[in-house]
Design a protein around this nucleic acid. Structure first.
Lengths: 344, 344
DNA sequence: TTGCTTCATGTAACCGGTTACATCAAGAGC
DNA sequence: GCTCTTGATGTAACCGGTTACATGAAGCAA
């Protein structure tokens, strides 16, 4: 037997559908006895309103779409947690949409959102996602989170990656490091680019040697970067990875290679995912409060949906969380740090 | 200007709404030129179908609801990742719903799903969620994942917690451990209970001493458990926590207290979350493929939605992943393991 | 009593799609 | 030329809610 509809309840209670709707939605213009009677009947029939129908007629779904490139790792789970907490507080549901890196699938997916959500939180750091933004209808309230540059001005939330990278490099320099290896993220990722840019700027300004190795934000590419360096017997005293997972990969590889961290090589990451404080040595990293970041995006989106004007670009500046992996050590503050090639 | 509707397209193309619907949904009974013309007009107007209206009329939303108790930690992010991968493959969307531990909110939330999703994947390990299952309408296809016992038979997927715990204890015993401390999970959590039960059974059978300390599945309670033991100068040679996060907390606390792991005390967890292999010593744990587990739930739900009969209870038996934290050490295989209280 | 206001309740249109059925033109068969 | 079939197209009902507006009864003043 299918679910009861509002008309079933109306018939059973010998009233009109309007009265049922009024009774169940707490309208004031209804006789209390009638209201209670209708509620009783609705309960008896196990009536549950059909949200889809309600949404259609109200032109509001109380749902927001979350567009993310990927679900790997703790960054997204933290972001999602923050968004969920806030959304649930505001009585909103979360519709998840993962692009899996495919921009065209992203456009299709975006279209699928119409009539399903009241607004979107979009995270699309791929430089190539220009098409995506063009397909983001003006009529759809949306907050852009850490997105690649795009046409026009939109409500936006960004991490100040350049400042974060600069701060990390300064921290490394302060610890006595002079020869930095930067493991970069994907070339088409705006976060990765900006972190690289900040690293370049800071190294140039502080007179540090810089070598850049390509990576892809995954643990393995951090490991691979160290393998390359080891094979070359390269000379460096710090590894700064563009995100924490690559830093972890590097850390593990260094450990296996018998290189002491931080004594011989300091290691730093970016994002401050929860596990950074659990590994050993604990990882130095650039941190923003990821969950708060997500929550903030939801708050702003809710404002937009309610019609509040908002087209500001809001920044979050990361701070450096100094942990064991870059603990300052006197012997490295000299001009002549231990060279990797010397022992092996 | 609001979004174009199917009627706008029909008017602009001088055809009926039926033709527009046919043209855009690839029906065969339409003249190709007309179809192309309509598509062209639709494109020009930037027409995107209203998913909500479509769902209402098709009585199908292509969305599945995911009900989870919490979003903390990597377990859920892995589960979600597996579900998303599968859902996206099947052309389904994911609507997230976190209960935040409140059973009554859960019931409300469940009702909110009606007309929004075609089916549910429900994870409700709280013993108290009986009410929840009663409010799960029979008409709503749903797959239960690691749920507490409940009335009636439903399509279900479960981790064999008892077997997993037994396997871990056997592994510990094989390594020479005789005095086990089990850090239990929340008392009202079915997974926690079963893991405790398995631990009890195995210890009894193997003649091991067992002490149980209460925990709550969070890292801090693992830390607290060790603090308690230290304060008492308790005598034990293995800590088996009911999940990985508590094991990690215990591991950190032991390290800080100067207790060597695994030499003095072996440590094991449960779940095999990704970070277990990254910490040091790497954590021994009971593992199932969490992402696959989630994906499987989605596959079965999709089957149910398509009307396939399915009321089986499917089990996943965890396997023990032996890592450094329980590395076998000869001196502990004697009847007289090092007592914690002897050094400090 | 009449006329006016107030308020509970019902009727029916609407949200934006899909689709059963009606309609109608063209082609086939005789 | 007439009928029958076939296939494209249009009309309108329907999905299940909400709500503007119509209706009609009760309350009140004159």
């Amino acid at each position: 037997m299918p679910n009861a509809t509002i008309r079933d309840v109306a018939r059973e209670a010998s009233v009109s559908v309007a009265s049922v709707s009024r009774a169940l939605n707490g309208a004031t213009n209804i006789r209390p006895e009638l209201r209670d009677h209708i509620r009783e009947v609705a309960n008896r029939l196990g009536y549950v309103p059909h949200a889809g129908a309600r949404n259609l007629s109200l032109a509001r779904s109380s749902t927001i779409g979350v567009v993310v490139p990927d679900l790997h790792g703790e960054f997204f789970s933290e972001l999602l947690r923050g968004m969920d907490r806030q959304a649930s507080e505001l009585g909103l549901h979360l519709l998840l949409m993962v692009m899996h890196g495919e921009a065209d699938r992203g456009v299709t997916a975006l279209h699928a959102m119409r009539g399903r959500v009241d607004g979107l939180v979009v995270m699309a750091p791929q430089i190539t996602s220009d098409e995506l933004f063009q397909h983001l209808p003006r009529t759809m309230p949306s907050v852009l989170v850490n997105c690649a540059p795009h046409e026009g001005v939109r409500p936006e939330l960004r991490v100040d990656n350049v400042a974060g990278a600069v701060a990390v490099v300064e921290h490394l320099a302060q610890g006595g490091c002079r020869r930095i290896v930067h493991i970069a993220g994907p070339d088409d990722n705006i976060d990765a680019r900006e972190r690289l840019q900040g690293t370049r700027e800071a190294c140039a300004r502080l007179g540090l040697e810089l070598r850049v190795i390509a990576g892809d934000f995954l643990e393995d590419s951090g490991t691979a970067a160290i393998a390359t360096l080891q094979a070359e017997r390269a000379d460096y005293d710090a590894v700064f990875a563009a995100n924490d997972m690559m830093a972890v990969g590097a850390l593990m590889a260094l450990k296996r290679a018998g290189v002491a961290v931080p004594e011989q090589v300091a290691v730093a990451g970016f994002d401050n995912i929860p596990l950074t404080r659990l590994i050993s040595p604990a990882l130095t990293t650039a941190s923003i409060d990821i969950a708060e970041f997500g929550a903030r995006a939801v708050v702003r989106l809710a404002g937009l949906i309610d019609g509040a004007p908002d087209d500001t670009l809001e920044w979050r500046a990361p701070i450096v969380i100094a942990r064991e992996s870059t603990r300052q050590h006197p012997k490295n503050t000299t001009e002549n740090p231990i060279r990797r090639g010397d022992r092996e």
